[in-house]
Design a protein around this nucleic acid. Structure first.
Lengths: 332, 332
DNA sequence: TTGTATGCGTTATCAT
DNA sequence: ATGATAACGCATACAA
């Protein structure tokens, strides 16, 4: 601040000079390298000097030298991180840090396909976790050739491209549809969000619905009250709607109520994600929730093993992270 | 995948060899360096070779060489990004990319103070945007010495440490409190979330409430229905509650309704953030919303100018990004 | 026990 | 118009 000339960051050479040792010794001490045996006195001198200078190792230089960035990249725009994923993400970050990785979240809505993959590849991430539908053969190939060890897809079911997928959206839709049918609904529809990014998940969930109700209608809907209002006012409505998730469910429910329809007597609604709000609104929302099958630590271990090559990934393999479960709430 | 030996990523040397030029020429072409004049034929050859090999420049090497990472770091855990900030973040990322920066979101709940600052500093970010209350004099100093050009604090009001702060939480509380008083409430309380990370914002908003109602009570509340239920069942309730945000407002409202109280007749509630859900629930929630004063592009420009030193930051300065505004909804 | 020397991939300065 | 070459900061094999 008060300095006009922004001093360059202190380097390990600076620390070495301050401690009166060689640069290599600094590296040995600070990384607790077991191959080199350094006296306790020297260790202290080095640590003191490092602390005094405010020395922080340069991640770029380390990455360049070691050839490993330790970065686990999650190219999700913030807006698309749902309720469940949020908590998982925080936990996963902690677990990965313990193992020497850095979880980095990186949003780039405007970049598509290979262009996006280039942006990711520039960081030379050890692993990339990304929605499976954002991946193409070309982008996966680009990541591979640029050294990314692990690509994990998030999405509905097995993928021919990437070794692992982790969430089956079709089952979610199927669970919801079965509930609606058992409830006596004769005309079932599924909402597919118009928002880019989650639309693919919506289609997957719709596919699940149609496994149960082959003729289920598709309702494309943007997340705003106006469009929901038009839907409700349009008449000729189904008597059972799977609304993609709890937020859309609330949107639809509100619109139907405004149009004078009763929920669930006239139209039954099922959400998904089991957001807390589903249990807070009146009537309470029936929802499909996800039970976490794997602990974040297990996931971190898996990523670590894949990166280190101790485990071999196979395209088409599916690691199930969540298992959907229906939560029925009395709408009273 | 089918390869057992993971080929090293192609480098600019590989591209040069493939194109039959020197490595420097590759760098010139791919960076459109105006100082070097390269024939159009050579340019094509280089570009072709780069595309064919799937060459992506290594960000670490570039950072090391240029001394500029172009990283704008937002150390926010995903869970703490509220509704408004989410959209802003995505837009800001796009705008920054246009200017050659990379917005990186980076969550590390477990790390505090200087330890957290060390993790940030390792990336040698050009700028760090972080909640002001997570900053200490020591951590700001560490960032500065490690080369971070710009530290922007997010928080309530001016800070002696960092040049800029961007959101005044006290005003939010004050607006809500004034509404409750005008509505005729005689006993006002403010909810302060127990969740770490947002508790500080809660305190700031409470401070604003007390600017209007000096004796306003403080309700510490975790985000779960059980605790809200105990609050509602406890009796001796205020007749006006500012619930921190819309989600907490819904939580409190639900608990009060379960306890047989009428909202807003018995207890009036005001939320904040103007989430869409505030207008969807019945009764509709009165809320304090934030109007965006600065476009994301303006913010990106500001960051760019600060990084390039074209603008001098002053500690204590306040860049107002949002202006709170009360939205009153008929509770009918 | 500690120091010297080398190279990671890139950009940029100089020759040619 | 293009090619050698030197750093950037760090980790590590090897020499002392």
């Amino acid at each position: 601040m008060t300095e006009d000339t922004p001093r360059r960051p202190p380097t390990s050479v600076d620390v070495a000079r301050a401690a009166g040792v060689s640069q290599a010794t600094v590296s040995y001490v600070l990384n607790d390298n077991p191959n080199a045996r350094v006296s306790e006195l020297t260790r202290q001198r080095v640590r003191d000097a490092a602390a005094r200078l405010g020395y922080v190792p340069d991640a770029s230089a380390r990455t360049l030298r070691t050839g490993r960035s330790g970065i686990v990249l999650i190219p999700l725009s913030a807006a698309r991180v749902g309720g469940l994923a949020r908590d998982l993400l925080d936990d996963l970050g902690d677990e990965l840090r313990l193992r020497g990785y850095t979880l980095v979240q990186y949003g780039e809505r405007r970049l598509k396909g290979v262009a996006a993959a280039k942006a990711w590849a520039g960081l030379r991430p050890s692993a990339v976790i990304v929605e499976a539908d954002r991946l193409t053969a070309a982008s996966v190939e680009l990541l591979r050739t640029s050294g990314t060890q692990v690509v994990i897809g998030l999405g509905g079911g097995p993928s021919p491209l990437v070794p692992v997928a982790v969430m089956d959206h079709a089952i979610i839709g199927a669970l919801a549809a079965r509930h609606l049918v058992e409830r006596g609904c004769t005309r079932v529809a599924a909402v597919v969000p118009r928002e880019q990014g989650i639309d693919a998940m919506g289609v997957s969930r719709l596919r699940g619905v149609r496994q149960i109700v082959p003729g289920a209608e598709r309702i494309d809907l943007a997340f705003n009250p106006e469009e929901a209002g038009r839907l409700a006012a349009g008449g000729d409505l189904p008597d059972g709607i799977f609304a993609y998730n709890d937020e859309y469910a609330l949107l639809v429910m509100s619109a139907l109520q405004d149009a004078g329809l009763r929920v669930p007597e006239d139209v039954a609604i099922v959400g998904a994600d089991d957001l807390l709000l589903a249990s807070l609104v009146r009537p309470r929302l029936t929802t499909v929730r996800f039970d976490t099958l794997s602990l974040p630590s297990d996931l971190a271990v898996m990523i670590d093993e894949l990166v280190r090559g101790e485990r071999q990934p196979k395209p088409g393999a599916v690691f199930e992270l969540f298992r959907p479960r229906l939560i029925v709430r009395s709408s009273a």
